[in-house]
Design a protein around this nucleic acid. Sequence first.
DNA 1: CTTGACTCCGTACCATAGTACGGGGTTTAT
DNA 2: ATAAACCCCGTACTATGGTACGGAGTCAAG
Lengths: 135, 135
Amino acid sequence: MRIGQVAKRAGVNVETIRFYERKGLITQPPTNTGGYRQYPKEAIARIRFIKRAKELGFSLTEVLELLTLQTNPQATCADVKSRAEDKISTIHGRIKDLQKMRRSLERLAAACKGSGPLDECPIIDCFETNKKKEE
Amino acid sequence: MRIGQVAKRAGVNVETIRFYERKGLITQPPTNTGGYRQYPKEAIARIRFIKRAKELGFSLTEVLELLTLQTNPQATCADVKSRAEDKISTIHGRIKDLQKMRRSLERLAAACKGSGPLDECPIIDCFETNKKKEE
DNA sequence: CTTGACTCCGTACCATAGTACGGGGTTTAT
DNA sequence: ATAAACCCCGTACTATGGTACGGAGTCAAG
């Protein structure tokens, strides 16, 4: 199968496949006489693996680690599980940060009556002073 | 005040101030005879404004919008409030996405007993097939 | 056997938010 | 007056995950 077919079936761009190859996530397949890459069908599965791991928050570097683990006969579930748990906690941290931001913005938006000049806007005021406006 | 002082007091890097200037977030102040930038003390407040807005999730482009609004006498609280509300909802969306990821990972991690070879790992299995392992 | 679609490669570019560097000139303190 | 510390400018580089481009060669259908 040629790169275009693989790309279509895996749901990515041709350029993305070449990019993954440069990053070491995919090994370059044999080429035909014309120099075209000839992919086995497992290539599609590998690209989908990458997509799925990415969707769950793994960076390409981390996906590479996961893929490398797979070729290591000493690797066990524990290796994968610990990476998943690390990822869960970093995601958790990001959620906390975002919730903090959201709560602050909600407080400010609630304090803003939505009319009047900017120099009375509690949101702008907060940005200027980093204090809640004293009543 | 010179750039180094401003940077120190605002809690950013000198380079960052020059970067913000290039981005139009800060106007270039007058320079002394030697060509050094001479900042009024309001510059510190402006940089802190940028920092605070960034901490609440606004990108530099959005911060620029906010700052530009301030110079517009027609602008009202409503303009700021609507930007805050937009930001709240994009943050909300990101939280939802992250929660979805976290839930999926938690399900997978829970399904993984944490020992044994990788080809029996439900996490790897999910990445390969995007299905929950059938029992 | 020609045309269009596909692929090759290397490089440059996108956004984001800066950081780092190098070779100069300036200011300040001793 | 000299050295340290500061600042100037432009450019390049960081990380992340790709996308775009251009000129060339190849493959398949008519």
